[in-house]
Amino acid sequence: MPPPLSIRFSPEGIYLPEIDLWLDPRRPVAHAWFSHAHSDHASGRPTLVLATERTLELYRLRWPESTDVVQTLEPLRFGVPVEWKGATLTAWPAGHIVGAAQLCIEADGYRVVYTGDIKLNPPICGITTTVVQCNRLIVESTFGLPIYHFLDQTEARRRILQFAQETLAESATPVFLGYPLGRGQEIAHVLATAGIPTSVHGAMHKFLPIYEAEGYAFPGVEAYSAKNGRERALVVVPGMRDYLEARGDVRVAYVSGWAALANARTRANAHELIPYSDHADFSELLDLVAGTGAEQVDIVHGYAEPLARILRDRGYNAQAAIAQMERLEEGEA
């Protein structure tokens, strides 16, 4: 008997025809699940959006209500099942950023779990991933090669603080580069709660209230302006780098999964590499896959082909779901 849920993969997103639901679609659709609020996952204006409450708040900051399209936003609470067209949908934490969730779809006792972007080890900001038992797992593979090993959050905090303190002690400005949502808030939280005066880019600053609602403090953190940029740690988007360098002695730390490789130093032009990510590293991915007990594994994003092969060598029924052009979009890794 075929499983009660089938899955279609395409460059436009992942679609479950039996229950008419798109997962992180990339084109306008009727019903969508947004795993988290990064723009390569939550974008456009589906008529109905299912997501966690935090994800919906973050999405609304980027995609404010429109008079042209009437949208219904339907919040899911972690661990609380809702009925959907004959199936049950349950959100579970994914650790990636605040609000990030996996979706478990169950029909006739058959379970599919879509991880979205996921981190297995506890994050600095966000809820630690729940490993959900399932029959079929759809998992990302941004860092799905055995060369990627990341620091745990305790060690990452230590390195972030050490870099900021040493740099300030030498009268230079510590600069952390990051995308507007996720890493930036984590770094600002670590710095500010350790008493280091910190300014963050405006694009990051606007998300702070949502992080604060989630229980993360940012004492004394200001939105960056040319006036408050001195003798403070700065957390800014990569585009500001040249401007800051022209203004004084800055040293740049690159906090990212890509910082696991020495060539990130040239690539990011960074002084300090801190390999910490909001994605799972290779061994976390293997642990996650094993923990779910999935009989079938579909891999999206990143090193899908090689990871599928590695998993097949270990006895899994695994395939690369989307033949993607790897790394063309670096996403918000």
Partner: peptide, 27 residues
């Protein structure tokens, strides 16, 4: 026990033989 194909792919990302070997020996 890593296969040649995985090792080649890893080398392509890392760009240095010593570093690739060190990373693949992790734990």
């Amino acid at each position: 026990g890593w296969d040649l194909e995985t090792i080649r792919l890893c080398y392509r990302e890392v760009g240095d033989t010593g570093e690739t070997i060190g990373l693949l020996l992790h734990s």
